[in-house]
Amino acid sequence: MTRVVYNTATTLDGYLADPDDSLEWLFAVPGSAEAESSFPAFLEGIGALVMGSTTYEWVYNHERLDEHPEKWAYGDRLSLVLTTRDLPLVEGANIRLHSGSVREAWEQLVSAADGRDVWVVGGGDVVGQFADAGLLDEIRVSIAPVTLGAGKPLLPRRLESDRLVLESARQSGQFAELVYSVRSSS
């Protein structure tokens, strides 16, 4: 059964990116390579992914995908970008732009996932839309020993403890990795 999994890294004070949408803080954390060591196994279970336009543009620009499309890290999986704007696409990648709701995109994501999970890459508002629609199943968050004081929030929605169940916690280098299952709001 296809699940929606939000897997991301955040600062200790709950930000995904700084006020300028940069993730440079993340790459400066010692031991980040160790924390990323489980990523290939996670990606094996992903059949489709979805992200917002700010996340997509950051990856596109950071990796210089216009010049190096081979750096697209998500293979041939469907990558749905939620946006109301035209954005440049990565040559050879299976990227589609979607301007509707996550509920309208759901059947397309399930079909593309083919029994595997859908990964919400980011940002926080996109995962919030999945939570609002009752489609969010799991939150996997790696907390970095960094505080920014401001930036893009991890999940700008209210989810209380009756909906979140801690499934696991472990240390990976300088990161604390937490996995929560998300109960429906009904």
Rank of each mutant, 00 (worst) to 15 (best):
G14H: 03
Y15M: 13
L16M: 11
L16H: 03
A17G: 12
A17N: 09
A17E: 11
P19Y: 07
D21N: 15
S22A: 07
L23F: 13
L23G: 11
L23S: 13
E24T: 14
L26C: 04
L26S: 01
L26K: 01
F27R: 11
F27L: 14
A28I: 01
A28G: 00
P30T: 00
S32V: 13
S32F: 14
A33L: 08
A33S: 08
A33Q: 11
A35G: 12
S37E: 15
S37V: 05
S38P: 08
S38G: 15
F39D: 13
F39E: 09
F39H: 13
F39M: 14
P40K: 09
A41D: 15
A41K: 12
F42M: 02
F42G: 01
E44H: 05
E44L: 07
E44W: 00
E44M: 02
G47Q: 05
G47C: 07
G47I: 08
G47M: 09
A48D: 09
L49D: 02
L49C: 08
L49F: 00
V50G: 08
S53G: 09
T54K: 13
T54L: 06
T54A: 14
Y56H: 10
E57H: 06
W58I: 03
V59Y: 13
V59S: 01
Y60R: 04
N61T: 14
H62I: 00
H62F: 13
E63H: 12
E63V: 00
L65V: 09
L65Q: 10
D66N: 13
D66C: 01
D66Q: 09
H68T: 10
H68V: 06
P69W: 02
P69F: 05
E70V: 03
K71N: 14
K71F: 12
K71H: 15
K71G: 01
W72H: 07
W72N: 09
A73D: 12
G75A: 10
D76N: 15
L78Y: 04
S79K: 11
L80T: 10
V81C: 08
T83Q: 04
T84E: 13
T84P: 03
D86K: 11
D86I: 01
L87V: 04
L87I: 06
P88N: 10
P88W: 05
L89M: 08
L89Y: 02
L89I: 09
V90A: 04
V90G: 02
V90H: 07
G92L: 02
G92F: 02
G92W: 04
A93C: 06
N94K: 07
N94A: 03
I95P: 05
I95K: 08
I95G: 05
R96K: 15
L97E: 01
H98C: 06
H98A: 05
H98F: 02
S99E: 07
G100P: 02
S101V: 06
V102S: 04
V102Q: 05
E104Y: 04
W106A: 10
E107A: 15
E107R: 15
E107P: 10
E107N: 14
Q108Y: 00
Q108L: 15
L109P: 02
V110Q: 15
S111N: 10
A113Y: 09
D114L: 10
D114N: 15
G115K: 11
G115S: 12
G115D: 12
D117E: 08
D117C: 05
D117G: 03
V118G: 08
V118T: 08
W119L: 08
W119M: 04
V121R: 00
G122F: 03
G122M: 08
G123V: 03
G123Q: 02
G123M: 07
